[in-house]
């Protein structure tokens, strides 16, 4: 069933916290190059799905197949090294470090020198450290942050912190990027910029993107395919247009009669 073009396949995923079923029989398939959305009211289990994919939680049952290998039971860092990167709903930067170091840390699994080279500060270290720094700076330049590289991350304004977080996730060199509410707390202008940015990185890095978002404008604007969750279960799937017209979605997510407001 899994073909070459499928990058992520989640089947029958269930997660219980005690007696509470946070996610039940969740199914999702992503093809290479997809830019899909995952929406649902608060507490629907969207972030739990992300935490299950990235290995922060272990599923009660079900399987997650990434690039034809099951990733259930792997450590989060191993999953990231396989090519899944994420951002967080509430920004989780390394807040006391510089912007550049934030991005350079994400490069750690790809460093070409060993710890011994690091301790000796030998030629190999010098060469690779320089290369690594330049790569990190390239990412910062893409996000228009190159002049802020020596700033402490926590001193940046909110919108820029979000961008640093996305830059950091991209520095992991992922093939699948999970964005958890990237537009949260942004003003309309920043949201427009963010949408451009997501489109841009999607094309430039040949990424598959799955995003959770509450802002209907973002989801409907950039996602090609949307999965809707409620109470831990998938209640609808389809293109933005189909979702907008889906009765169950309007009832569960937007409330009765609020469909046109979005």
């Amino acid at each position: 069933m899994t073909t070459i073009s499928t990058i992520l396949e989640i089947s029958d995923l269930t997660k219980f916290f005690g007696g509470l079923g946070a996610v039940r029989n969740f199914e999702l398939t992503l093809k290479k190059g997809d830019l899909n959305g995952l929406i649902g009211p608060n507490g629907a289990g969207k972030t739990t799905v992300f935490n299950l994919i990235t290995g922060i939680y272990e599923p009660t049952s079900g399987d997650i197949v990434f690039n034809n290998t099951s990733i259930v039971g792997l450590q989060p860092f191993e999953i990231t090294r396989l090519g899944i990167a994420r951002t967080f709903q509430n920004i989780r930067l390394f807040s006391n470090l510089t912007v550049l170091d934030n991005v350079r840390i994400a490069y750690h699994p790809h460093t070409k020198y060993s710890m011994a080279d690091g301790i000796l500060h030998n030629r190999k270290f010098d060469v690779n450290e320089k290369e690594l720094t330049e790569k990190a700076q390239e990412f910062l330049a893409i996000f228009g942050l190159e002049n802020l590289q020596n700033e402490i991350a926590k001193n940046l304004p909110y919108g820029q912190q979000r961008r640093v977080e996305i830059a950091r996730a991209l520095a992991c060199e992922p093939r699948l990027l999970l964005l958890d509410e990237p537009a949260a707390g942004m003003n309309p202008r920043e949201i427009l910029e963010l949408m451009d940015l997501i489109h841009f990185i999607h094309d430039r890095f040949d990424l598959t993107i799955l995003l959770i978002e509450h802002q209907m404008r973002v989801v409907m604007g950039i996602c090609k395919y949307i999965t809707v969750m409620d109470f831990g279960q998938v209640i609808a799937r389809g293109t933005p247009k189909e979702i907008q017209e889906n009765e169950r979605v309007i009832e569960a997510y937007l409330g009765k009669g609020a469909g046109h407001a979005a």
């Binding site: 990231t80 990167a85 967080f88 989780r92 930067l93 840390i105 490069y107 699994p109 690091g118 992991c172």
Partner: peptide, 25 residues
């Protein structure tokens, strides 16, 4: 030298935010 290498940055990132460090591989 350890602190100023990539390994050192990884060590510091654990202090800053364990969950984020995990997610960064």
């Amino acid at each position: 030298n350890l602190i100023q290498s990539s390994t050192g940055r990884a060590i510091i990132s654990v202090r800053e935010d364990e969950v984020a460090a995990k997610a960064m591989g």
